[in-house]
Each structure stands twice: as C-alpha cells, then as structure tokens.
Computed example of a mutant assay.
Amino acid sequence: MKILIVEDEKPNADRLKRLLRELRPQAEVVAVLESIADTVEWLSANPCPDLMLMDVRLSDGLSFEILEREPIPCPIIFTTAYDEYAVRAFKHNSVDYLLKPVEKEELLAALNKVGSQQANVLDQSTLEGLLNFFQPKKFRKRFLLPYKDGYKSILVQDVIFFYSEWKITRAHLTDGNEEVIPLTMEELEQQLDPSIFFRANRQFILCVDAIGQVHNYFNGKLKVDVKNNPELEVIISREKAPMFKNWLNY
C-alpha cells in the first residue's frame, strides 16, 4: 500500500509515520507534503496513491481545495484539530475523520475500513460518530491552580497570552500577573477555543483581544505587537501567516 501524507506540522506528520510503521509495516509513505500547492503539484506528476492521510487545515488554506480542483479516486482519512468539517469530509471519498492528536487505536480502525465494501458508506457507528461531532464542543474556561495551602481559580477569559520557556508554560493575565499552568502548549492548543486563541509559534498562544498592530516582516513572516506589552514581539512564520490573517479576518 502506498500512502501519501498531507500535513503541515512536522510533529503530527512524524507521529502519523510512526503509527503507520507500527500498524502497517508493509506500507510505503511515498511523500509528506505541507501545502495545497505542493500536493496539487505532486498529484499531477505522480500516480494516485492507495490512501491519503490529509490534514484539513493547511498553511495555505483548507485541503478540500485540492479535491475540488480534481477529484481523487483513492480513499482519504482526514485528520484535524477542528470538528466543524466532518460532513464536508464525507463528500470527498472520506474513510474516516480523526481528531488530533491521532490515537493509535483510532488510526487502526480507520485503516481497517480501507478497501472494505463499506468504506465509503455511513454505517450506524459512523453515523453516531458524526452526530457526536456536532454536539457543541466544550472548551476550557478556567484553571484550578495550587495556591498557598489550597487552590485558586484562574479564568481563561483573563488570559492575554500563554508562553512557554524552559518547558514551563505560563499565562500572562490582564492584571499583569503571571501564573504557571501545568499543561504543555500542545495540550492547551487542544483545550482552548480556536476562535479566541491562536498558536502563533512554538512559544506563544495569543488571545485575539491581545493583538495590537500586525506588521509585515522579512521573508513573508509577520510581527505581532501585543497590547500593553511594548517590549514583546511575536513572530508568525511565513507558513502560518495566511492562516493567522484568515483567523483575524473571520
């Protein structure tokens, strides 16, 4: 089996390759592509793979754009950190949709569907999963943190930005204080409302209300000024810049 991975975040791509080696050691990952443009170019120059693992949101847009340009006959397993694209995914030869971080058991179940006569049919279990996807997703609203001999609660709405330094995650609050948060940036990214918080880079997650001026930076990057923090500059990579601008414009 020849498998094409379309994923713009290297840790997620590496995770998928590792899981595939464990679950389908005979399979060949023919390429790992990071954008719509790269994928369209690759597909025009190579035979269609037997299976595609495709992230929904790429640096230059939604991966559905690839499929809308030219239908792809092979089955597709969509991976995403967002659940609002589930129904749309099934319109594009989708075998399954998996939320990140992709779990080994879920990927195995999706791979087992490939090649079956019901791979592209909404059976009862798939339908139930799809309906569950459209239940309102609950995002984190507060943190319970140790304080003196007890605990205190910090509201997410009071956080301007999160940042990581020396593997310690801190929340910068509207009152100027900072609190250590016992979660990784990856865990926070999954738990925060993506309409309010954006993972700017490996070090920063920004609240939309904290963003001041946005400047063009060299080599297609963006520089973000954080309100009431003139000494702080947050850099958005060239790859993430289009997604960041779309997020601000939504």
Results as ranks from 00 to 15, higher is better:
residue 227 K to T: 06
residue 6 V to G: 08
residue 71 P to E: 11
residue 16 L to I: 11
residue 147 Y to D: 12
residue 200 A to D: 00
residue 159 V to S: 04
residue 179 E to C: 10
residue 133 F to G: 10
residue 67 L to E: 07
residue 47 P to C: 03
residue 168 I to W: 04
residue 28 E to G: 08
residue 54 M to W: 00
residue 9 E to V: 13
residue 6 V to F: 07
residue 3 I to K: 10
residue 80 T to P: 07
residue 58 L to Q: 09
residue 222 L to R: 05
residue 247 W to N: 11
residue 69 R to I: 07
residue 5 I to V: 14
residue 205 I to W: 03
residue 133 F to I: 08
residue 33 L to Y: 04
residue 60 D to V: 10
residue 129 G to H: 12
residue 57 R to P: 00
residue 152 K to H: 11
residue 93 N to W: 00
residue 162 F to R: 00
residue 105 E to M: 07
residue 159 V to T: 08
residue 110 A to T: 01
residue 66 I to G: 05
residue 61 G to H: 13
residue 188 L to R: 11
residue 249 N to Y: 05
residue 216 N to D: 14
residue 75 P to L: 02
residue 185 M to G: 06
residue 162 F to A: 06
residue 120 N to K: 07
residue 236 I to W: 01
residue 29 V to F: 10
residue 7 E to R: 13
residue 111 L to M: 04
residue 17 K to R: 15
residue 114 V to S: 03
residue 164 S to T: 15
residue 158 D to E: 14
residue 96 D to Q: 08
residue 195 S to C: 10
residue 220 G to F: 09
residue 195 S to E: 15
residue 194 P to Y: 08
residue 115 G to E: 12
residue 173 L to A: 00
residue 200 A to E: 01
residue 244 F to C: 00
residue 173 L to P: 02
residue 3 I to A: 08
residue 121 V to C: 04
residue 244 F to E: 06
residue 90 F to V: 05
residue 187 E to I: 08
residue 17 K to W: 03
residue 75 P to C: 02
residue 213 Q to I: 06
residue 117 Q to F: 12
residue 114 V to G: 03
residue 67 L to I: 08
residue 8 D to K: 13
residue 54 M to N: 01
residue 67 L to D: 07
residue 128 E to G: 06
residue 129 G to K: 15
residue 210 A to M: 09
residue 220 G to R: 06
residue 42 W to I: 00
residue 178 E to M: 04
residue 138 K to W: 01
residue 240 K to M: 12
residue 39 T to K: 06
residue 178 E to W: 00
residue 127 L to P: 05
residue 159 V to H: 03
residue 55 D to H: 04
residue 192 L to K: 09
residue 89 A to L: 04
residue 137 K to R: 15
residue 216 N to I: 06
residue 168 I to C: 02
residue 180 V to D: 01
residue 234 V to K: 02
residue 148 K to E: 09
residue 24 R to M: 12
residue 174 T to I: 12
residue 20 L to Y: 05
residue 169 T to S: 13
residue 221 K to D: 12
residue 170 R to V: 00
residue 72 I to Q: 14
residue 206 L to R: 01
residue 130 L to Y: 09
residue 248 L to F: 11
residue 223 K to R: 15
residue 44 S to W: 02
residue 78 F to S: 02
residue 160 I to S: 11
residue 195 S to H: 12
residue 31 A to L: 07
residue 100 K to Y: 05
residue 130 L to S: 08
residue 11 P to S: 13
residue 77 I to M: 02
residue 193 D to Q: 09
residue 69 R to M: 11
residue 235 I to F: 09
residue 173 L to V: 07
residue 86 A to C: 14
residue 149 D to R: 14
residue 192 L to P: 09
residue 2 K to Q: 15
residue 99 L to T: 12
residue 13 A to N: 06
residue 178 E to S: 09
residue 29 V to E: 09
residue 233 E to I: 02
